[in-house]
């Protein structure tokens, strides 16, 4: 995906090889939070002890944080889907991080 993005990116600016050819950072963030969220969700469901709950002041912190992270992962994923990086001139609302 990196190369094809680079090819689509515009010709109006001096083609710097940098950000235009980098991977989409939003995808990396989605992956990070999906993995963290999933691990915490499983831990929260499977291994939480009363001591863990007491430690966090009465709630299952792994479970709740895991769910929150999965939501964040989905949001980043949606952002990538709804506003993929695109060629210059296209209208965007700030969502296209690597487009011009």
């Amino acid at each position: 995906m990196t190369e094809s993005e680079g090819a689509r990116i515009g010709h109006d600016t001096p083609v710097s090889s940098t950000a235009s050819r980098l991977f989409d950072l939003r995808t990396v963030l989605a992956v990070l939070f999906a993995v963290y969220g999933l691990v915490l969700l499983i831990l929260g469901l499977a291994t939480t002890t009363d001591a863990d709950i007491a430690k966090a002041g009465g709630f299952n912190i792994n479970l709740d944080t895991g769910i929150a992270m999965l939501v964040v992962a989905v949001l980043f994923g949606l952002w990538v889907r709804v506003r993929p990086t695109r060629a210059p001139g296209a209208t965007g609302d700030g969502a296209g991080p690597t487009g011009h």
Binding site: V39, T47, A56, N62, T65
Partner: peptide
């Protein structure tokens, strides 16, 4: 150390 159980501690 005081409030975070394993899992979230790694994060």
């Amino acid at each position: 150390k005081e409030v975070l159980p394993n899992g979230i501690l790694g994060v």
